[in-house]
Each structure stands twice: as C-alpha cells, then as structure tokens.
C-alpha cells in the first residue's frame, strides 16, 4: 500500500518534471528565437513595420466606423415615429394612450406633445406668431413621439411597428422618417463590409510577408537544419524556433499597428473635437479599447504563427540530409 502510494507520487513527480522540461524548452526556444531576431534589429523592425502598417489600415477603419456609429447613436429618435392624433382626441385620452403605449415591449419611450405646447413651440420657432394669433383656435393636433426599443429600431421593425400604431383608433396619421436611417445604415453596412474585405486582404498580405521572411530564414539556416535532421531532430523540434519567429513578428507587427492607430487618433482628435464643438456636441474620438487591443495582438500573433507554419511546412521537408 505504502509502496503503491510512493510509486504514484513518483510518477506524478516525473510527469510534472517532464512538463517542466517541456515548458522550459519552449521558453528557451522562444527566447532564443527572440534573441536571434534582436541580433538583426533593423531587418526585424522593418518586417514588423510592414506588418504593422498592413494591420493598422483595417484596425483604423474599424475604429473610425465604431466612432461614427457611436456618433449616430447620439442622435436619439433616429427612427422615432410621430403619431398625430385625431382632433377629437382630447388631452386626457392622449395621456391615457401614451400610458398604454409605454407598456408595450417594442416601445422604449413615449413623449406627449400637447397641442398647446406644440402651438407655443411653433409660435416661438417659426416666426409666424402674428399669423397664428389671427387664427381662431388651435389647428395643431396632439402628437405622440414614439421611440422604439433598441431591438426594434431597425428600419424593418420600425416599419412594422408603424403599421401597428396606424391602426389605433385615436391615431389620425403616423409618420416614420426612415429614409436617412436607411441610407446611413446602408453606408455603414458597406463600410463594414469594406473593412472586412480590406482586413482579409491585408491579413493574407501579412501571412505572405511572414511566410517569405521565414522562408529566407530557413534558407539561411539550411546547414543547421540539415545537421539537426542528421542527428535525429524531429520535424517538430526543427519547426519550433521558426514558428516562434513568426509569432514574434506577428506580435511586434500588432504592437506597431496599435501605435500607429493610436497616434493617428491623437492627431485627429483635436480637429474632430473642434468640429463637434461647432455642432454643439461633446463628441470625442474613442481610442483602442482593451478588447480591441487584445484581439489585435492575439490576431496578429496568430497570423504570424500561421504564416511561418505555411512556410515551414513547404520548405522544411525540402531539406533532407545526404
């Protein structure tokens, strides 16, 4: 029993020791490939810069798009529906209707503009106060401004909601100004798609850049690879330093892309603020958040890794000792 337990702990120790060795070896290889890159700082930096520039384009566009969407989010009532109530509907029933509509799931917010308020507003804003004074009574109806909830603000959903609201007895006429919402959404869709297309193309470019760099590295280390194979190095063992090189290239490229994008945003920020100020808005550009940053670095390292994997797979098998 005691020996059994002893044996078990022994194997456990051995396993953890083996894991230690595995981990140590990876650490060693990753650091030594980093060291190899740092011995040629100029060419390493140049490769990383090319990757960085390639990645900064889609990332920068993505950020601008996000900012534009945030800006459009500030325009509340983008898809708001105006319900013009019938003349017969008095103040009291209008309030009741507003209360009823507020209970609906699709509706986020209901604002009642009474005919008196509307008239007052019209009087001050339109400059037709004298004309209005000459009118007998108030020609304006009570109006409810409906803001659909977030899930129902798409043009299709808003239109459906419009249809339902039109059927209400008290509603004379319902209006939804969708045209510009549609256009803006269309533009955003195109821009999003364009960012994806650009991102994919430039991602492929990064793969090729890393692949080509690693290919040259494999050529430079031809003798070393041949001798290592001769001595019994497995393909995994030989591949490892190259994969780490690719990983480092990708990571450095990602960091450079982040720097470039952040720098560009800083340069753009003050003119954008000035412009927003002219429109009376507090809008400022938001930079790279932590998630985007993590995704950028993760993605770029992965691209580097894949690029070198492709190169290594193609060229390593060509080298056989003779």
């Amino acid at each position: 029993m005691a020996t059994k337990r002893k044996k078990a702990t022994h194997t456990g120790q051995r396993r953890s020791l083996r894991l230690d060795i595995w981990f140590m070896r990876h650490l060693q290889v990753s650091l030594s490939s980093l060291g190899r890159l740092s011995r040629n700082p100029v060419s390493t930096l140049m490769t990383a810069a090319v990757i960085g520039i390639a990645l900064s384009l889609p990332i920068g566009l993505h950020l601008l798009l996000n900012n534009a969407q945030q800006l459009s989010g500030n325009w509340d009532g983008a898809a708001s529906i105006s319900l013009f109530l019938t003349k017969e509907t008095g103040q009291e029933s209008a309030t009741k209707l507003a209360a009823r509509l507020r209970l609906q799931d699709e509706i986020e917010h209901v604002q009642l503009i009474s005919r008196e308020e509307a008239l007052e507003e019209f009087r001050t804003l339109s400059g037709f106060s004298s004309v209005l004074d000459s009118l007998e009574g108030n020609p304006l109806p009570n109006v409810l401004i409906i803001e659909p909830g977030e899930k129902h603000s798409s043009p299709e959903a808003a239109e459906q909601l419009l249809g339902e609201l039109e059927k209400i007895r008290e509603v004379e006429f319902a209006q939804l100004d969708l045209q510009w919402v549609r256009r803006f959404q269309g533009i955003t869709q195109i821009a999003k798609r364009a960012v994806w297309v650009l991102g994919t193309l430039l991602g492929i470019a990064v793969l090729l850049i890393v692949g080509n760099t690693i290919r040259l590295e494999i050529q430079n280390r031809h003798a070393e690879i041949e001798i290592t194979k001769l001595i019994g190095g497995t393909n995994t063992f030989i591949r490892r330093p190259f994969l780490y090189s690719g990983f480092w290239y990708g990571l450095f490229g990602g960091i450079i892309a982040w720097l470039l994008v952040t720098l560009s945003l800083i340069l753009l920020d003050s003119p954008v603020e000035k412009l927003a100020g002219l429109y009376g808005s507090q809008f400022g550009l938001s930079g790279v958040d932590l998630t985007t940053f993590a995704l950028l670095l993760g993605g770029s390292s992965l691209l580097g890794l894949c690029g070198s994997w492709i190169a290594v797979g193609r060229h390593l098998s060509e080298i056989e000792p003779t």
Partner: peptide, 30 residues
C-alpha cells in the same frame, strides 16, 4: 526516422559541424 538516427552516431569526412556555434554547442546538439 529521427528516433532511429538518435541511436546511430554518424561521423563524416567533412565533419559537418556548425561553424557559428562553439565546440560545446556542437557536441550538445544530440
């Protein structure tokens, strides 16, 4: 193949050493 080669030490007329590594590092490769 690699595992087989580890059990067969090979010596060549042209030595096949790595000239950018020290003697110690060369011998350590296997």
């Amino acid at each position: 193949t690699p595992y087989h080669r580890r059990e067969v030490g090979m010596i060549f007329q042209d030595h096949r050493l790595l000239y950018d590594r020290t003697v110690f590092d060369n011998v350590a490769i296997p």
